[in-house]
Write a protein that binds this DNA or RNA. Sequence first.
DNA 1: GTCTATACTCTGATAGAC
DNA 2: GTCTATCAGAGTATAGAC
Lengths: 216, 216
Amino acid sequence: MAAPRLPTAQKSGSAAKAPRSRIQKRNRQIILDAALEVFSTHGFRGATLDQIATQAGLSKPNVLYYFDSKDAIHRDLLTRLLDTWLDPLRMMNPAGDPQAEIMAYMRRKLELSRDFPRESRLFANEILQGAPRIESFIRDDLRPLVDDKAQLLNEWAKAGRIAPIDPYHLSISIWALTQHYADFAAQIAMIRGDGHDALEGAETFLGALYTRLLAP
Amino acid sequence: MAAPRLPTAQKSGSAAKAPRSRIQKRNRQIILDAALEVFSTHGFRGATLDQIATQAGLSKPNVLYYFDSKDAIHRDLLTRLLDTWLDPLRMMNPAGDPQAEIMAYMRRKLELSRDFPRESRLFANEILQGAPRIESFIRDDLRPLVDDKAQLLNEWAKAGRIAPIDPYHLSISIWALTQHYADFAAQIAMIRGDGHDALEGAETFLGALYTRLLAP
DNA sequence: GTCTATACTCTGATAGAC
DNA sequence: GTCTATCAGAGTATAGAC
């Protein structure tokens, strides 16, 4: 149950929140953890404060004592998530070895799915709903970063250091494959049987897949 | 707007429904189409009869005249979907050329995503929710079929006709990649710009990917 | 077959006692 | 800080006129 936790999002430029006591911080964290569970399973509209309160072991009014609204809880979770979600791609180093960099990126994404499956499903839910709440994030943060790395991949391909492949589809394939292990874990668990971890063998398989794809 | 339609599911063994007039059939179809739109976006709990009725251009009680309940609409959609969802894998022919068969399977899955993106998202929503309504389908229908094809892939690998790869991860990768183009279409559209179709170049990329992976 | 009116439950949020 | 009580609105579903 000791799931890793995403770092608190820094609202750049916003006024500092009132200082919080230990119990404040602790209960807010309990609520966020419960809400992550519920939102990632049922989506924003499908989740209820009742479920979140029960999951958190608190009363409904008590939950609303710590957060202004259902929406505020959800926004808090999303903000923390998005802040972390770009890190693996950001870390891709133009000066490094092309194949090693791409493989390392894939592995970092896979680790995110392994360590933060609920966050991954929260993100998936947002996209399925048409991404209304994260549209600006995708356009203003994700897209420029992807464009930048696509250019880099194109240069690597032109230099003959990796196979000449569409950089956008390469990115999409890494997202799809790594996210899938978190988002479709329920299905994978039923297919593979309860004795197996869904991610068992995933890194080996993806390693082989991209090794073969990228070879010039 | 003329989206292709899934065939009516045959409830094997259930009593025949009362015969329906033309207007019955037509309105039921309109409602199913509207409900597919709403359920695939918001999930079961996030969807409301109000949204469905508005989308269908009918009043809420009128919707409930054609279907017993919100749940009945959803069940109808799911049944039609699941019946079709296995077809691409079922069609994989043990007597065919291994690489060609796998590539054809991938292409059929990609076509499903292209032609039935809403059905794909409906399925994704179910899995994200933990697959409570389709657990028996996965265990009793999907899993045996996957096991069967996994055995076939192992035989092909042992005979040296394809590279020796984990057949389960191969299946998972095909699901992940093809479904992703439908389920994450909102994100892909924002990344690639509005002029592009999300699936543009997908078949070429996936073709190269699996050609390289499968080569013995 | 379709509508208005309505019953009843759930849901988000607030008031106020403790 | 936490609870019980409660409100207003939305939600599913039904009754009954047309």
